[in-house]
Design a binder for these strands. Structure first.
Lengths: 147, 147
DNA sequence: TGTTGACCTTGCCATAGGGTTAAGGTCGAT
DNA sequence: ATCGACCTTAACCCTATGGCAAGGTCAACA
């Protein structure tokens, strides 16, 4: 099976699969005489695993560790649990951060008339740093790619 | 005042200030005979505004719009409120997404013994996509820069 | 005067997670 | 022989920022 078919079956894109191979997340796929990558059932299974781990918000680095554990029949489930637990902690940290931002901003918005006059507590709040400013710079939360 | 001092006073870094200038977020700073940028009180005020808007999680693009509104004495506060409201919506969307991921993952973790045996519902869950998979790919949430 | 160190300049590389496009090779079918 | 659909690598785009390098400037000190 070629990369296009593997992409469709796994829910990834061909680009992603090549990228994952290039960063060593995947062992290089076998190649035909024409240079095309080919994938068997086991490869598909692995791609699907990666896809779902990504869906759960694991970074590629974490996915790599999960893959290693997945393929290690001697693994201790405690290791997996620790990895997942660390990810949950990270998610909780980000959630708390975003909630803090939202609440601060919501407070400003609630005090803004939102009419055609220029007076605006939101701008004043940003200008003067009045409201409970988040303790530190929020971690970089990138805008979604484009949709 | 040179860029280093302006950076310290605003809480940004010199690098950020140059970057903001390069992308047109800031009008180019004045230069001395030696080519050094210099900043006055008004500039500092603007830098501080940007810094606090970033702290509230606005993207640089949004900060640009906020700056324009801030400097427009004819603005309608409704425009500011709309911008802030859209940002709150975006924050809420991201929060809901992260909460969904966390809950799914937490459920898997709760079912894992976490001992030295290899049996692991977490890996099984990822493998089979058993648990309520998030409806779509989570938006890319980058890891924090480095700390 | 010479040197040292702190500061400034520009510019390139890197990050995550790809999207998009380009230039070209391969394949099956007509 | 040619066409479209597929594949290959490569390269540049995005966010927002850190890091590093090579070189110019400046103030202070011997």
């Amino acid at each position: 099976m070629n990369i296009g078919q593997a992409a469709k079956h796994s829910g990834l894109t061909a680009k992603m699969i090549r990228y994952y191979e290039s960063i060593g997340l995947l062992t290089p796929a076998g190649r035909g005489a024409n240079g095309y990558r080919h994938y068997n059932e086991r490869d598909l299974h692995q791609l699907a695993f990666i896809r779902r781990a990504r869906d759960l918000g694991f970074s590629l680095e974490e996915v790599g560790k999960l893959l290693a554990l997945w393929q290690d029949r001697q693994r201790a489930s405690a290791d997996v649990k620790a990895l997942a637990g660390a990810h949950i902690d990270e998610l909780n940290r980000k959630i708390a951060e975003l909630v803090g931002l939202r609440d601060t901003l919501q407070e400003l918005v609630d005090h803004c008339q939102g009419d055609d006059r220029p007076d605006c507590p939101i701008l004043q709040g940003i200008e003067s740093g009045c409201c409970s400013a988040p303790s530190s710079r929020p971690s970089p939360i990138t805008a979604p790619g484009k949709g």
